[in-house]
């Protein structure tokens, strides 16, 4: 067939030279290459003893953030559930009652908020969809388990602990929010 462009170049040379036909040069050459690696430092990360540093934007386990005063950010608008391609998020909204202002920042809050971690594909669309900066994916990895129902993470495992905050400030700054 005629050439379609003027950029083509034949790259596959199937003619062997006499030396190549003898097998041995390539074999010894190969053995020398592997032997060099014998003396090279190994490249293994001995997980779990050693851990690799994840990128700050790594999309791992979710967290539901609280604001500075310890109130939950989530207002149960449902955008994350709509944005989820795996349909892994379910929530039940409820009205904030009097006296609960210290718990929930907005007037509506998620009474039940569940993510099915086995369904979740960690695409990060929920984080993007959230208008309240309530849900973030973090650089923690989701634990493995032997019981399927345990993978439905409720608010007990998603909402961050007031005393043990999960820092997501670095990922907030990358593109989604500009520094002032």
């Amino acid at each position: 067939m005629q050439s379609l462009t003027n950029r083509s170049k034949m790259v596959s040379d199937k003619k062997m030279t006499f030396l190549e036909k003898l097998y041995l040069p390539a074999i010894f050459g190969g053995m020398i290459i592997t032997a060099k690696h014998l003396f090279r430092k190994n490249n293994t990360i001995k997980y779990p003893e050693e851990q690799r540093v994840f990128a700050p934007v790594y999309r791992g386990q979710h967290v539901l953030k609280r604001d500075e005063q310890g109130r939950e950010n989530c207002t149960a608008c449902g955008l994350c559930a709509v944005a989820c391609p795996a349909e892994a998020i379910t929530m039940v909204a409820n009205e904030r009652k009097k006296g609960e202002e210290h718990l929930y920042r907005e007037e509506k809050y998620a009474e039940v908020y569940e993510i099915n971690m086995l369904r979740c594909i960690f695409c990060g669309l929920c984080e993007e969809a959230c208008p309240k900066e309530a849900i973030f994916l973090t650089d923690r990895i989701v634990k493995t388990d032997d019981n399927r129902p345990d993978f439905v993470y409720g608010k007990d495992r998603l909402v961050e602990d007031v005393n043990n905050r999960i820092d997501v400030s670095r990922r907030q700054l990358t593109g989604k929010r500009k520094e002032k």
Partner: peptide, 11 residues
């Protein structure tokens, strides 16, 4: 095999 392949091998 592990040494040739920059690995640790059984440990």
């Amino acid at each position: 095999a592990a040494w040739f392949q920059d690995r640790v091998g059984p440990d």
